[in-house]
């Protein structure tokens, strides 16, 4: 019995240490974002400020382009997500529930594509976009991420578990393959779609690499790039408002994840479709 308690305590301790390591920068960010300027650089560590300095937030929201960056980020991740689902779901359905020549080959290619990091294809894509004059547009931020091997894989695994009788029934009922995809398969895959949406949105919201390459126009800056501008302003590093801006750009993700947490876990552990 005491051994069990000991094991539990060790587990909890290790988890707490791990969590502390990961959370510390975030906590520090939160702490700095509400500290007055003179308390930011001190030799001793205080997590709580002597008084809350909300002007950091008002400064970030009113004196800088943060609202614009947030809007740009929203347009970009929404665009990416919508098109990803628009293409990945029918592809996954075809791979899981249709018979055609070369199906396993195509699926093998999808799996292969999962192994290729984006950085490998970034330069050719950049050169191609430069040729057709697509750089410095929203499309340059969106198009490279529309074909998503991960999305196709995730949805395919989900669809492969659905009984094929279900789709045969839909065919007998007069549905075309396209309407089967959107009226039967997709609604059933909502947990998987939620999980995918979270992966996709986080990855692209936080992405600095590609926006930095594909766009130079400050008007198209997404939040991570926006924060970069912020730091370079002539006043030097204005840490308080900078941290406030960082809080503002991370908050949407954290809130979205907390809201979708249950569906997310369901989608990852996806199996649970009872007939």
């Amino acid at each position: 019995m005491s051994r069990k308690i000991l094991g539990r305590s060790v587990q909890t301790l290790l988890l707490s240490v791990g969590a502390a390591f990961i959370l510390l920068p975030f906590v520090w960010m939160l702490s700095l974002s509400v500290k007055p300027r003179d308390e930011i650089f001190t030799t001793d560590v205080h997590f709580l400020p002597s008084r809350f300095e909300w002007s950091n937030f008002t400064f970030a929201l009113t004196e800088t382009d943060i609202p614009l960056f947030l809007w740009n980020g929203l347009v970009m991740v929404a665009g990416i997500l919508v098109f990803q689902i628009l293409f990945a779901v029918p592809c996954a359905y075809a791979l899981a529930q249709r018979q055609f020549a070369g199906r396993s080959l195509v699926f093998g290619l999808v799996l292969g594509a999962l192994l290729v990091p984006f950085h490998v294809t970034a330069i050719p894509i950049f050169l191609g976009f430069a040729q057709i004059g697509l750089l410095n547009t929203f499309w340059a931020l969106i198009i490279p991420f529309i074909p998503t091997a991960f999305g196709i894989f995730l949805f395919r695994q989900f669809f492969a578990q659905l009984p094929s009788d279900l789709f045969d029934a839909a065919r007998v009922d007069g549905m075309s393959e396209t309407s089967i995809v959107w009226r039967i398969a997709f609604p059933l895959a909502l947990p998987a779609a939620t999980a995918f949406a979270i992966f996709s949105v986080t990855a692209h919201w936080n992405d600095l690499f590609w926006p930095l390459i594909a766009t130079t126009d400050p008007g198209l800056a997404t939040p991570p790039r926006g924060i970069l501008y912020f730091r370079d302003q002539e006043s030097g590093d204005n840490v308080g408002p900078l941290m406030a801006a960082a809080v503002i750009t991370t908050a949407p993700l954290v809130i979205a994840f907390l809201l979708a947490q249950r569906k997310f876990i369901q989608g990852i552990a996806s199996g649970g479709l009872k007939g």
Partner: peptide, 16 residues
């Protein structure tokens, strides 16, 4: 669908 046949499946195949 064009044959206008109705089919009942062993697993019922209702849309969940």
């Amino acid at each position: 669908y064009e044959r206008n046949v109705a089919m009942v499946f062993q697993s019922y195949a209702l849309y969940p």
